[in-house]
Simulated scan of single mutants.
Amino acid sequence: MTVHSFTVKTIEGNDVQLSEYEGKVLLIVNTASKCGLTPQYEGLQELYRTLEEQPFEILGFPCNQFGSQEPGSEEEIQSFCSLNYGVDFPMFSKIDVNGDDAHPLYKYLTYEAPEVEHGDIPWNFTKFLVDKSGNVVKRYSPETEPLELKKHVEGML
Results as ranks from 00 to 15, higher is better:
Val16Phe: 06
Gly86Asp: 07
Leu157Gln: 08
Ser73Glu: 05
Thr144Lys: 09
Ser33His: 05
Ile121Arg: 02
Met91Ser: 11
Ser79Arg: 12
Asn14Arg: 15
Tyr140Met: 05
Ile121Lys: 03
Gly99Met: 01
Met156Glu: 10
Gly67Val: 02
Glu70Asp: 05
Tyr108Ala: 11
Gln45Lys: 07
Leu44Met: 09
Gly119Cys: 08
Pro39Lys: 13
Pro90Leu: 09
Glu53Val: 03
Phe61Ala: 00
Glu148Leu: 00
Asn30Arg: 10
Gln54Ser: 13
Glu154Thr: 14
Glu154Leu: 12
Gly36Glu: 08
Met91Lys: 07
Glu57Ile: 02
Ile121Met: 06
Tyr41Gly: 08
Ile11Asn: 06
Pro122Ile: 06
Leu37His: 04
Cys63Tyr: 02
Glu57Met: 05
Glu75Gln: 11
Ser19Met: 08
Pro122Gly: 05
Phe80Gln: 01
Gln69Ala: 13
Met156Gln: 13
Tyr140Phe: 15
Thr31Tyr: 00
Gly67Lys: 04
Asp101His: 07
Leu44His: 10
Ser79Phe: 00
Gln40Tyr: 05
Asp100Gly: 07
Gly13Pro: 04
Val137Gln: 11
Pro122Thr: 01
Arg49Thr: 14
Gly134Ser: 12
Val25Ser: 04
Met156Trp: 11
Val136Pro: 01
Phe66Val: 00
Gln54Thr: 12
Met91Gly: 04
Glu57Asn: 13
Leu105Gly: 01
Phe92Trp: 08
Tyr21His: 15
Ile121Cys: 01
Pro104Tyr: 10
Ile77Pro: 00
Lys150Cys: 12
Pro104Lys: 10
Pro122Trp: 07
Ile28Glu: 00
Asp100Trp: 04
Val136His: 11
Leu18Ser: 12
Asn30Phe: 05
Leu37Tyr: 04
Phe61Tyr: 07
Pro39Ile: 08
Pro62Asn: 12
Lys127Thr: 12
Ser73His: 04
Met1Glu: 15
Glu52Asn: 15
Thr31Pro: 01
Glu148Gln: 04
Ser82Asn: 08
Cys63Leu: 04
Ile95Gln: 02
Lys150Arg: 04
Leu83Ala: 09
Lys94Thr: 01
Met91Val: 10
Gln40His: 08
Val3His: 03
